[in-house]
Design a protein around this nucleic acid. Structure first.
Lengths: 190, 190, 190, 190
DNA sequence: AATGAATGAGAGTTCATTCAT
DNA sequence: AATGAATGAACTCTCATTCAT
């Protein structure tokens, strides 16, 4: 017996991400995904019962993988700014290294594929960062402003910075990254 | 033959923007656009020779309308921070009031519909803002950092802020907007 | 404006009946139906929103057309045997002349296409014949046996006779038809 | 390679008959047949080289089993009516007990699966009954009418009676069966 | 100019069949 | 021999576009 091969799911996911980055959600077909993944069309349907399901599962997967990354190496005991920069860098790195996922998730937001249930869960991701920022405010490091506004501001800078670096094809240098962080920190700090 | 019933063109553009916001670029058909615009399918083809052309023209239109707005009421003679805030507010207001256009342009970026030529022109929009920031740097108001990074940082905060306000369905209050600007300014200022 | 053309519905129905007789329900595709009807595939979908609906509507149509035929020229005032033979002949003729419809309805009965609701309505057809037979019993012409059994017996002879005539390619002659009726009458009469 | 695990062949045949009765020929897939038979898809292909062959062989099998049953307990020496009723009852019982096979054969008749060669052989089944009826005519018991017409008439009553009993979910009682036979006999007798 | 029916290429999906295990 | 994953041709259905009115 030939067992079902989990590697294929990855192949399909990667193929999809690549194609979406290239041509957008509007431009991909199941046939192309299969070809790109090195599989027959029918094979994709063994692993996902529809295009819809494939896209929803990929969306969930992307969400999870970002959550898992944001707090890598974070030490709650370290000074706030150090910890904050750590998380900031994690988010930045993640968005650089997984740019295709970022693009995919962006595109999904208005797509007919991703259902509301899947969308709603998205908010949960930000919860740990939310708490981190609350801590910063309590300890007097950050502006006494609505936490969500601070969070959005932090994310906005990263998001736009990465997008721009990618499309202008100028990879972020160490010094640019430092400037980016400084702007973010100066913007947030009390 | 390209008749000039501008009202119909507007109907078609608005229908398209509304549908794209609702369901994404991937989910709209010419038939739906026509119905939403109160026209027959064939009629749309009198004004645009293809879906492709319709989308590209709408894209151009959106771009132009943003350029035209960013420097409204801007007085080059006023103090830098005043002028800068003016522009910042214009951008913010524009993105709030024309959220559908913002969504549409975002989605277009990776779509197979918008051709590269159309994409490239996009950069030009930012040119006047670019110059404004250069001026701020020269006059010592802003950080001595790569101009583009400053620009991106400024835009990122606005972009993410508006998006969030929209999806969380909490309209931006005067005080939130002030906080947003303060964060932006503190981040940029020398 | 080009109006929707009801003749096309007939073309589609006829094409379907012909193909089902030829190859059975299992062997027909929407593409073939369209081609046989002289239309493009998409056109069929203007008139019927799915294969399922097409088949269900054709089923209903066939049912109705048989009801309408069974009592043509029937005069309730005429002697019972005369009236009964009239109806018997109508049924026979109908099944000969609309053999394709008969085959189609037979095949539908176990198909996944025809839904139960459609099936149930079928019983209603027999209601007028049912009443006719009841009358025959009351007047002492027919065996005093469960009415439904008499009805089924009557139908069975016709049904099988027509089927056989068709497949053996020996059209029913006047004398064969008379024999058939005599057998039926002798079987039913008191 | 055609291994002889007759049990598996029976499982496959029974699964097929059950499914065809449920959903018609148009609604069954090899995968479903296998599942219903408690086997893997591939296994079915060890016993039958194609769906086509499976269906044709099942068709043949059904035919044979009916022939074998019609003359059980028939004693050519017994009085004609007794012998005739014996055969009539055998046919009736067979069709009741093997209703799924009856349905399957009915559906096959217009299917693209069963080839003409298989269809033609069907006529042979009726040959012994044909001879029985000829005997009845010679001995003056039955109407002097084309033998085939008599045969068809006999079969029609049974066929329709069984079908109706099944679908109306009223099992045939002893007395109903007697009525049915009386109608048949009265219809046929000289 | 305006309509919406008609078209057919192409998308999503199924399924008979094959094949690696 | 048995399994069920893999295949890709073929099916149902959609939709950008055309065309008759």
């Amino acid at each position: 017996m030939k067992p079902r091969d989990d590697k294929k799911i990855d192949q399909i996911f990667n193929a999809t991400l690549g194609l979406v980055k290239q041509k957008g959600l509007a431009g991909i077909t199941m046939c192309e995904i299969a070809k790109e993944a090195g599989l027959a069309t029918g094979t994709v349907y063994i692993y996902f019962k529809s295009k819809d399901e494939l896209l929803n599962m990929l969306f969930s997967e992307c969400r999870k993988s970002s959550i898992d990354n944001y707090f890598i190496n974070y030490d709650p005991a370290s000074p706030f700014k150090i910890g904050f920069k750590n998380v900031w860098m994690n988010i930045l790195k993640f968005r650089i290294q997984n740019f295709e996922e970022v693009v995919f998730m962006d595109q999904c937001y208005h797509s007919p594929f991703i259902n509301d249930c899947t969308k709603k869960l998205t908010k949960e991701i930000t919860s740990p960062i939310f708490k981190l920022i609350e801590k910063g405010k309590e300890q007097g490091y950050l502006k006494n402003v609505d936490t969500f506004s601070l969070l959005i501001f932090m994310i906005g800078g990263i998001h736009e910075g990465v997008k721009n670096a990618h499309y202008s094809q100028k990879p972020l240098t160490k010094s640019t990254i430092d400037s980016m962080f400084d702007m973010c920190w100066d913007g947030l700090k009390a």
